[in-house]
Design a protein around this nucleic acid. Structure first.
Lengths: 234, 234
DNA sequence: GAGCACAATATTGTATACAATTAATTTCAA
DNA sequence: TTGAAATTAATTGTATACAATATTGTGCTC
């Protein structure tokens, strides 16, 4: 079930590299790897018990998804999406996901509905345990699964990449005050899907994404993870 | 000017690997590398005068863009998008490019207009010389430049990947009969952009993409590149 | 003691050697 | 001659060794 992410869009060149990339992606999703964290090659090689060759392949994969930023001769760091990028990601999602929700509503089988229902249950359980990281991860997974039901691999891989980046954006810009908007959105979407109401699903997804976007604090400010020069000079 | 492609979305880990990837991408765009062509690592390493390490990095990059397909322990091959994938690519473009055209119309500077104009000139020149490969390449470049003007890096990288795949799709499924629809589409788009008419640009792009999509022969059939077993057994 | 140059260290970039897997060829038997 | 099995060849997958670069630490000079 953990392998749900990254099945789409990962090119299975090397099972080992894929495994490492998946593990790192999961860690980023669950906010265990904070934005800006350095990912040293030797360190990772030791942790995963593979050579740097494998690590480099995995990092290149993550870099392509823009989950890490590779600086030449400096190393790889967990990405820190800018405010600009945050807007872009949610604008892109607003273009892609609503049509996918409509398609999903047209195609969803009872098994699909059941799968999504389980996801919502787990999400609520995680929220009840105050495990915000896991809840957020599952919340993203809901969107990924929904896109998968839409059965459009090309757009699905885009959406998956966007949701992964969203996880980083949320880590940086989420404001805790607005945690309640999530409460019913996914449930309403699932309801529309089970009714096969594509129009409703599309509209619900659209407003859901607007809610998410506006639940971010994207005002310009000095981010704490900025360069030390900027942070300490004045 | 050849480097126009792949500046977006390529993660500059290694200049050499980037250079190789760019060269291969260009070759695919210009239909010098046909779908299905095997890309042997040693062969490429010799051609470019670098080690297989570099080649593998470049191939992984292309694989991520789905320009090549990597088969485990078999090697990399120039991708052969299926009919299904062809539909998906143009559906995705239909979702992303019209809004980008609108944005571009709102933001285009006189310099941008001039740049696009030059592209159209080159495209016409290539057509006049019957260099269909180059014309198609420049045609794709027009879309890339337009998206770049829209100043939305996230969607631009998606569009760029889609256009690259479109080049393969056109190589496989283009029907020569319908070559004229291209004639005025880009010019009309440029006109809308120069007027700053976002609404018109969006509509023009929408219908242009529909035209392109319908200029493909996407009927199911036995492709000649199928396995011999399938082709000759019945 | 402050500032700069130089050296030492650590980390990434690249090439190559070796292992593993797959495809092709040959050989042998029916 | 056909078929299959085994061996050989070729290609990819992985690890490691070496080279290049950036950072850090040290010592010298002013």
């Amino acid at each position: 079930m953990n392998a749900a992410f990254e099945k789409i869009g990962r090119n299975k060149t090397s099972p080992q590299a894929d495994s490492v990339a998946e593990s790192l992606t999961l860690a980023i999703h669950q906010h265990r790897l904070a934005p800006g964290t350095k990912l040293g090659e030797d360190e990772l090689a030791e942790i995963y018990g593979v050579s740097r060759t494998i690590i480099r392949a995995a990092i290149q994969s993550l870099a392509h998804h823009q989950l890490v930023e590779v600086k030449r001769n400096r190393g790889a760091f967990v990405a820190q999406p800018s405010i600009r990028e945050a807007h872009e990601v949610f604008e892109a999602r607003a273009l892609l996901e609503p049509p996918m929700a409509r398609r999903a509503a047209d195609r969803a089988t009872p098994q699909d509905i059941e799968l999504l229902n389980q996801h919502i249950q787990e999400e609520h359980a995680a929220l009840a345990l105050d495990d915000a990281g896991k809840a957020l991860y599952l919340s993203g997974l809901f969107h990924v699964e929904l896109t998968r039901i839409a059965n459009h691999a090309t757009i699905a891989s885009f959406v998956e990449a966007l949701i992964a980046r969203s996880s980083l954006i949320i880590a940086l810009y989420w404001r805790r005050e607005s945690a309640l908007c999530e409460k019913h959105a996914h449930h309403a979407l699932l309801d529309a899907l089970s009714r096969g109401d594509g129009q409703a699903a599309e509209e619900l997804m659209k407003s859901h994404l607007v809610d998410l976007h506006s639940a971010l604090d994207l005002r310009e400010r000095q981010k704490p993870s900025r360069s030390l020069k900027e942070a300490l000079s004045p």
